[in-house]
C-alpha cells in the first residue's frame, strides 16, 4: 500500500507551470467528494496512531474532528496535506484520495500542499510585512507582477475580514499584529495561495473569545467557496459551525455523521459520553 516518502523536491512538470489552475468553483458540485479515505492506518514507529479510518469529506462542507488529546485527530488532519512526511518514522497505509486521486502516487506533493491550505493552532506569520506574508503563496507560484499581487493581497485580506484594519499598514511587520489579527492574516495568506481545501488545526485555541467569534464567522463564510476541515477541542465550536462531525478516540474513528445527529442522537454510547462531558 502507499507509503510516505520523505522527498519534497520540486518536480519538473510543476516548476514549468506559471500558476496552478485555481479550483473552478462553479464546476465543483456541492456534495461531491473532496477527500476519500479508505482503511487508513498510521504508525509512528511502533505506535499505531490511527486505526482503520475511513471517511468521506464532502466539498463545501465544514467537517469538525473532535476527541480527547492524543486521539489522533490532528495526526489525521496532518496526513491530508502530507505534513506527516516531515515526521521521521511515520508510515501510512491505506488509501487517501484527493479529488479522486491517490495523494501519495497521483498528486504532486507541492501541488497538493498548494490546493490544501493549512491554518495552525498558533498564528504563524512570517517575519515579513503584512503584504509580503499574503503575497508569499502567489509569489511561490511565479506571480511577480506588482498590480496582480496587490489585487490578490487585497482580495485575500477582504475574504479573511482583515482588509479594513490592515489596509493602511500593509508594509508594517506582521509580527506587530495582535494574536487574533495574526490568525486572520494567516487565513488570508492561505487563501491567497488559492487552495480548494483549508485544514484548520485548533485555530482558535490560542485566541480570546472575540477573535474566536470572528474566526468562526469567517469559517462559515468561507464554506461557500472552500471545503474546511477543522480540528477542535471545543465541542460547542464543532456544534456551532460544522456540517459533519467525526469523533476520534484512541486512534479509532468512533463515529462520523451529520453534526446535528451527532449532538442530538449519537449512535455510539462513547460519543454520547464524550459530548456530554463525562470524559475527555
Amino acid at each position: 500500500m502507499a507509503l510516505t516518502t520523505t522527498t519534497y523536491g520540486y518536480t519538473k512538470e510543476r516548476s514549468g507551470e506559471a500558476r496552478p489552475v485555481s479550483p473552478d468553483i462553479a464546476a465543483v458540485e456541492p456534495g461531491s467528494l473532496t477527500f476519500e479515505i479508505n482503511h487508513m492506518d498510521l504508525f509512528y514507529g511502533d505506535h499505531h496512531a490511527l486505526k482503520d479510518v475511513s471517511m468521506d469529506i464532502r466539498t463545501h462542507e465544514i467537517t469538525a474532528l473532535i476527541g480527547p488529546s492524543g486521539c489522533g485527530k490532528s495526526t489525521f488532519l496532518k496526513s491530508l496535506n502530507r505534513r506527516n512526511d516531515l515526521v521521521e518514522n511515520c508510515r501510512i497505509t491505506g488509501d487517501i484520495r484527493f479529488e479522486g486521486k491517490d495523494i501519495f502516487r497521483e498528486v504532486d506533493l507541492l501541488a497538493l500542499r498548494t490546493r490544501v491550505g493549512m491554518v495552525f493552532q498558533q498564528p504563524t506569520p512570517f517575519p515579513k510585512s503584512i503584504f509580503e506574508n499574503v503575497a508569499y503563496g502567489p509569489r511561490l507560484q511565479g506571480i511577480s507582477h506588482k498590480g496582480e499581487l496587490a489585487g490578490i493581497v487585497e482580495q485575500s485580506l477582504r475574504q479573511a475580514a482583515c482588509w479594513d484594519e490592515m489596509k493602511d499598514r500593509l508594509n508594517q511587520s506582521a509580527l506587530g499584529l495582535s494574536g487574533g489579527q495574526q490568525q486572520r492574516l494567516c487565513i488570508a495568506r492561505t487563501l491567497a495561495a488559492r487552495p480548494s481545501v483549508i485544514l484548520m488545526d485548533e485555530p482558535t485555541s490560542a485566541l480570546d473569545p472575540i477573535s474566536t467569534q470572528k474566526i468562526e464567522d469567517l469559517a462559515l463564510e468561507l464554506k461557500e467557496k472552500y471545503t474546511i476541515i477543522i480540528v477542535t477541542h471545543n465541542m460547542q465550536q464543532a456544534k456551532r459551525i460544522s456540517d459533519k462531525t467525526a469523533f476520534f478516540l484512541l486512534g479509532e474513528l468512533i463515529e462520523f455523521d451529520d453534526t446535528v445527529k451527532m449532538f442530538t442522537d449519537p449512535s455510539n454510547p462513547k460519543t454520547e459520553e464524550y459530548i456530554t462531558g463525562r470524559f475527555g
Binding site: 491550505g117 495552525f120 507560484q141
Partner: peptide, 17 residues
Amino acid sequence: PESYRLSSYGLGASQWQ
C-alpha cells in the same frame, strides 16, 4: 520557530524556496 517551515511547506513551497 518550526512554524516558519511548516507554514511555508503548507503553502506549497519547496525546501529551497
